[in-house]
Design a protein around this nucleic acid. Structure first.
Lengths: 110, 110
DNA sequence: TTTATATATTGCAATATTACGATTAAAAGA
DNA sequence: TCTTTTAATCGTAATATTGCAATATATAAA
């Protein structure tokens, strides 16, 4: 039905999947990579750097913001976007845990 | 248009986003967590462990398999699913990189 | 105040995803 | 062979996502 049964899963599972899902699009990966590359935080010139129209990028930025992966500071007419470390820490800690569990039980599987 | 413009992004961005996207659903997070919990690899009793119907889980497993995050070994009538470490290594290495870049440029941002 | 600039929002078309009942396929056992 | 068991596939309904043109909004500059 196109509708995820969120109520059937834990809050942690839902929260994690929302953050991870926000990175499940090449444009949003590209936005994050761009924000990492320019070493101060960057404004709307993300639009110039990506091959998508301004409204599309604005929408992607909104999703990244909702997921807690990006912050936006208004500065006059423009907006300064930058990475929200807290979100990335949460994701990283999940994958770190997966990795260490896999290390422990090395070779038990297929 | 509901269609991602993959051709406008790098192969790495596309591949990473496909793997990450596969984890962008609470059921698929739950499947991975389940596979980590049972310390030998587990078969179709994932269906018993999750609050979704068998065809739905089969579909989620297929997506995880396509993304290279899970492997399935046929064993008679049943199938033994387990985590594909290689996929998780790739994802982890992305988030490790993000983390270390963020460490370097501590406090430059918003 | 008018104008220019930068972003966000709206509305919509095309496509993708989620979920599951019904069915099929494939191997094991009677 | 027939039956049972397990998992995949098909078909379909409901909903979500992607992308952009057009438009709105908001601040700065003239």
């Amino acid at each position: 039905m196109g509708v995820t049964k969120s109520d059937k899963f834990t809050q942690e599972q839902n929260e994690l999947s929302i953050m991870v899902k926000a990175l499940g699009h090449p444009a949003r990966i590209a936005i994050i990579e761009h924000l990492l590359k320019v070493n101060s935080c960057i404004c709307g010139d993300i639009v110039g750097a990506l091959p998508l129209a301004q409204p599309t990028i604005s929408q992607h930025l909104k999703e990244l913001k909702n997921a807690g992966l990006v912050k936006g500071d208004v500065e006059g007419t423009s907006v300064c976007y930058c990475i929200d470390e807290k979100g990335f820490e949460k994701i990283k800690s999940f994958f770190d845990t997966v990795h260490s569990i896999l290390q422990e039980k090395k070779d038990e599987c297929c």
